[in-house]
Nucleic acid binder design. Structure first.
Length: 300
DNA sequence: AAGGGAGCCTGGCGGC
DNA sequence: TGCCGCCAGGCTCCCT
């Protein structure tokens, strides 16, 4: 599923059952996803308490308590098709008795965390057909030096992403705006959909070279301001909507996000540009191997 | 050294 | 109906 808004939605869904919960048992059904599960994965999780569940870019981070100061962090990435669902133990019956799941594809359930929070049991199940996702376990103190996180760019949430930041990041860049916005080392968390949407909202062509929206003295142009504003707005609205649901991906409680109904260009090749009075037609092109949807008439 | 393309996987869809 | 090619929300590696 997952760009930043979807991952944030997953985090919010998992937090109530995970934060403060003890992991009574963990199981994996295969040795690897995109990468091998770390050594002793299940054993290292067993008995640990999740002290906090946070997100950085498209990564979910579960802080675990530990014998030594700090403890480990469970890193989870959903790749292209990863999802979590929560099975809560039924009130009646023996402890650990779970509601029967309606028919559903469990063939790609690759990892399960059996948790207990204040006496309430739940199973947190990770499903990932394409297995582009992964999990890892590292010492919390080493998170900052970890290559996956050390070079990660700005979060597009909050106020840090403004015109000046865009100008600083894009100055001199000869990659197209589409590629620059997808680059996790510059801004972290955007993916194919939200980049298309933000560029449309900002009225900027995905093909325009990133450096060309920066003033020659390196300061922010009006285009930088517009882009920063559009990115923040699209991401904020998508989070509010519970992310986007494509295909049959579900949120942790089985419900659907609904931001996909707000797509203005993504997946809308051949349709009229929704900008009032534009009159253009949405076009699909391929940039660095990925689909780009945009309006050639109002995105310049 | 930055930027482009291939590759990693499975599943769903449209076309023939 | 069946098969085939194409496409998919990410990221890393390798090549230029």
């Amino acid at each position: 599923m997952p760009e930043l808004p979807e991952v944030e939605t997953v985090r919010r869904g998992l937090a109530p059952v995970m934060e403060g919960a003890i992991i009574e048992r963990a199981e994996i059904h295969r040795p690897d996803l995109r990468f091998p599960f770390p050594d002793q994965f299940a054993r290292r999780l067993q008995g640990k308490t999740v002290t906090a569940l946070s997100r950085r870019a498209k990564y979910l981070l579960a802080d675990l308590d530990g014998d030594r100061e700090g403890g480990d962090v469970l890193i989870m990435h959903l790749g292209m098709s990863g999802s979590f669902r929560i099975l809560e133990a039924s009130g009646e019956g023996a402890p650990g008795a779970f509601h029967h799941e309606r028919s559903r594809n469990t063939a790609h359930d690759h990892a399960v965390l059996h948790v207990n929070r204040n006496g309430k049991q739940a199973a947190i199940i990770y499903n990932d057909p394409r297995r582009f996702g992964f999990m890892d376990l590292i010492d919390r103190h080493r998170l900052g030096e970890d290559p996956r996180f050390a070079s990660l760019g700005l979060e597009p949430t909050g106020n840090s992403l403004d015109g000046a930041a865009i100008a600083r990041l894009f100055k001199g860049k000869t990659a197209p705006l589409k590629a620059a916005l997808l680059d996790q080392h510059l801004i972290a968390g955007l993916g194919n959909i939200y980049v298309c949407e933000a560029l449309w909202q900002a009225g900027l062509s995905p093909k325009r070279l990133a450096g060309t929206i920066v003033k020659s003295d390196g300061s922010a142009s009006e285009r930088c301001e517009r882009l920063a504003e559009a990115v923040r707005d699209v991401i904020a609205r998508a989070i509010e909507a519970g992310g986007s649901t494509l295909r049959d991906h579900r949120l942790t409680d089985g419900s659907l996000g609904y931001f996909q109904h707000s797509f203005r260009v993504y997946g809308r090749e051949g349709e009229a540009c929704p900008h009032a009075g534009c009159g253009g037609t949405i076009k699909r092109i391929v940039q660095s191997g990925r689909s780009t949807f945009y309006c050639p008439s109002c995105q310049r």
